[in-house]
Amino acid sequence: MADLLTVRDLTVSRGGMAVLEGVNFTLASGAALILRGPNGIGKTTLLRTIAGLQPPVAGTVSAPAGLAYAAHADGLKGALTVRENLTFWARLHGTAGIAPALTRMNLDALADRPAATLSAGQKRRLGLARLLVTGAALWVMDEPTVSLDADSVALFGQVVRDHLAGGGGALIATHIDPGLAAGTLDLSPFRARIRRLDGFDEAFG
């Protein structure tokens, strides 16, 4: 299958410091990749760079134009209902029909509740339902299973498997395996070396 995402010699930085360097991987359509590594290694920074929120320091990312990014925060408006929240993202991404997404993330019963009244796990489910209505082929997810119970993790795993079966791809930073037959990439070997400071140039790395 064709490559959905290609990352070549990527260096990413946070707060003006390189955190990961020389990251290489490809993701074929129909495949998922799980990123692992200790806290602070730069998983979020890497995902933000791939999502196009910040420029790479070095190297290239070739990702499909429309990718769906799910961050730590779900981007929900408490004053709007579950249905309104989801409809907004669907219309923004130019897709129609949120009913399947509601059903698959088990949100039908909550559809008319204001998002502010949802529990943390329910909010997360709504945040993940957003991925379904974007219609994007590549899902980039940052700790998607936080605050989900075991049933919801299984539900989420099923949704991702269906997405992959349809030719999509998923890049997931997580500590919990949601039951995917996915490759794993440990980021520890890519930790940026701390260079000696030889000149002022280095201070501006």
């Binding site: 933000r48 999502a51 196009g52 929120l53 134009a65 429309g66 990718l67 769906a68 990014y69 961050a71 730590h72 925060a73 779900d74 981007g75 929900l76 408006k77 993202w89 923004l92 991404h93 130019g94 957003r130 974007t134």
Partner: peptide, 14 residues
């Protein structure tokens, strides 16, 4: 939008 993360999501939307 910045607090609830929508701004990041808007920035990655088409």
């Amino acid at each position: 939008d910045q607090e609830d993360g929508s701004l990041d999501l808007l920035a990655t939307a088409p």
